[in-house]
Design a binder for these strands. Structure first.
Length: 266
DNA sequence: GCGACAG
DNA sequence: ATCTTGTCGC
């Protein structure tokens, strides 16, 4: 009888992974390094932000089947949307076999390889629509070592990425970054769509931001720098992609990879 | 030791 | 992540 815990990584394996993250993080760029520009205009005292030359935004995700054994299979998806219309112009999927369990803080070691494959395939086959920035379903710098899946993928692919999480990952940097404090502050400060508050720890470090997508969405999303982009720009791009709580690139990646599972596997 | 814990 | 119908509200 093979149960799932015989595939659990050892402590030394996790320490090795942590070293890999710290090593790769040396290449991390947390400022805007983009091939499009941002302009901020004043319109009756209101800030109007425009991204000039931004045409293609990507979204990546993995969807899993009902797993019963330790042999998990999943579908990885890469979606490209036209900006600013948010029309889907490309989708691709790949099936993945996964043996390692999910471990908070080490998500990239489960998911990054198939996502990287999809990106490299697109760059080879259709370089003209390769996304100028990719929104990733998972955190970037909002991570114990400031190097979550979004940053990991961004560095390996050398592409600008933004991390978006649906749940808060607690960071060990003082009381302000505990689950309880973040929940309370979200309720207190995020009153309308577009409201944000910075997730700053006791050290002064800013790890990401809690963002209210729309007026009618109560639960925030958690935005952080992936790679080659600033937190401010990340938040602004995410907000421009929000027709619902989850920004369209990752929302479409999620919807379409699930649909793929329904039609091809189930 | 206990609790927390992206997807 | 995923199992799942109805249901409350705009």
């Amino acid at each position: 009888m093979n149960s799932n815990y015989d595939n659990n990584p050892s402590i030394t394996q996790m320490e090795e992974w942590a070293r890999v993250q710290t090593e790769l993080k040396l290449n991390l760029i947390e400022t805007d390094d983009l091939d499009f520009t941002k302009t901020i205009k004043e319109d009756n005292g209101e800030q109007v932000i425009e991204f000039n030359g931004l045409n293609y935004i990507g979204g990546v995700d993995l969807s899993f089947e009902n797993n019963e054994n330790n042999e998990e299979s999943a579908i990885a998806s890469l979606i490209v949307l036209k900006y600013p219309s948010l029309e889907v112009i490309y989708e691709n999927f790949s099936s993945v076999k996964l043996e390692l369990p999910y471990i908070a803080g080490f998500l990239a070691f489960r998911e990054v390889a198939p996502l990287l494959d999809l990106l490299q395939n697109l760059k080879k086959m259709k370089p003209n629509i390769f996304p100028q920035v990719i929104i990733v379903d998972g955190n970037g710098t909002l991570h114990p070592r400031r190097f979550g899946l979004a940053s990991h993928l961004g560095v390996l692919a050398n592409v600008p990425t933004i991390g978006v999480g649906k749940n808060f990952l607690q960071i060990d940097d003082g009381e302000t970054l505990t689950m309880a404090h973040v929940k309370a502050t979200v309720k207190e400060k995020l009153k309308k769509g577009g409201d944000t508050y910075l997730l700053q720890g006791q050290s002064g470090m800013i790890w990401g931001a809690a963002v209210r997508s729309l007026d009618h969405t109560t639960n925030p999303i958690f935005v952080s720098v992936g790679h080659r982009i600033s937190l401010e720009t990340s938040i602004q791009i995410v907000l421009k992609c929000c027709r619902y709580r989850i920004p369209e690139p990752t929302r479409q990646a999620d919807i379409r990879s699930r649909e793929y599972i329904r039609n091809h596997i189930s």
